[in-house]
């Protein structure tokens, strides 16, 4: 039972990170119908930027306040990652709008290869590790053999994820930008006719997706304390799985899917074998798509002639 509770806590933490990345997939797919293959690598880049921000804050500026350090990491990572994703959309996807269907996907695969290799070339192939930012934990139930703990890091991840999701939900549901996004999702031509700047709305979607990926990246660095150039691919695929599981295009679905994937992964590692934890996540993807293609919260896709 204790093991189960502990894995539940770990799984929700990991799932929050996946959920934040999954929103990026789901939004971009919703608005332009494209699997943004490079999104996992955007997440990796954001984690790198957060790590660099951490080094600036601690070694150059000498700030010791943990809360301030994390806040600065978040802001810096969100700002730069948003700019990068905006530029990626501008360079690699916008010229392909209206082109044939596979073109943006291939372009995104190219971008994904480019991003991970760019980081490898500029920052080196080795793992980058930083000392733990936050130590300490609550002990929920203690035995001699096994203690269930809830670390401060995990609480911060839950809190930050919840707050940002609320802010983000407000943005999509209540603001004019959100309305424009939903309009473009339904019909781009019609949206343009009623005066929505479609290009700008799509660009903003990429910016928001990147900002949420940057939150995930910052949390990832804070939680694991290590990042390398190849860390984008697997979380990217898992987050995509989460988006599909929740029903692609559905925002609450992405978060629920993310947490489910996180739970499946940690519980699988705890009770079966850690070697095959990625197989578990990938199998969930295949099974979902085959038996429940619209996901948990998605609308069924009507086939039109």
């Amino acid at each position: 039972m204790d093991v189960f509770v502990q894995q539940l806590i770990n799984g929700i933490t990991l799932g929050s990170i996946y959920g934040l990345i999954a929103i990026g997939y789901t939004m971009v797919f919703g608005i332009i119908g494209m699997v943004n293959f490079a999104h996992g690598d955007v997440f990796m880049v954001s984690a790198f930027i957060a790590l660099i921000a951490f080094l600036i804050v601690t070694t150059w500026l000498g700030i010791t306040s943990v809360a301030l350090a994390i806040f600065i990491m978040l802001i810096v990572s969100m700002a730069f990652t948003s700019l990068i994703n905006w530029a990626i959309e501008r360079v690699a996807y916008r010229p392909l709008r209206g082109s044939f269907r596979l073109a943006p996907l291939i372009s995104a695969i190219g971008m994904s290869i480019f991003l991970s290799n760019f980081v490898q070339v500029t920052q080196g192939p080795r793992n980058k590790a930083i000392p733990p930012i936050i130590r300490g934990e609550f002990i929920l139930s203690g035995h001699d053999a096994y203690t269930v703990t809830l670390s401060y890091k995990q609480i911060i991840i839950w809190g930050v994820t919840a707050v940002l999701l609320a802010a983000f939900w407000y943005l999509v549901a209540k603001t004019s930008l959100g309305r424009a996004q939903r309009a473009c999702e339904q019909d781009q031509k019609m949206a343009a006719l009623v005066g929505i700047d479609v290009d700008r709305t799509i660009a903003m979607t990429f910016v928001i997706a990147a900002a949420l990926a940057a939150v995930a990246g910052t949390m990832y660095v804070m939680y694991y304390g290590v990042v390398s150039f190849s860390d984008g691919f697997v979380p990217g695929v898992k987050a995509f799985t989460a988006a599909v599981l929740g029903g692609i295009g559905s925002l609450p679905g992405a978060v629920v899917g993310g947490i489910l994937i996180g739970l499946i992964e940690t519980l699988w590692s705890a009770y079966f074998t850690i070697d095959y934890k990625d197989v578990a996540a990938f199998s969930v993807l295949a099974i979902t798509l085959i038996f429940l293609p619209q996901g948990l919260f998605g609308r069924p896709d009507v086939e039109k002639v």
Partner: peptide, 21 residues
């Protein structure tokens, strides 16, 4: 050799923009 995949990825993007077909 470090730059092989870097250029490869970027070439994929460029060729898609230049000749998507």
């Amino acid at each position: 050799t470090q730059y092989r995949m870097l250029i490869f990825g970027f070439a994929m993007v460029l060729i898609m923009i230049w000749k998507p077909r």
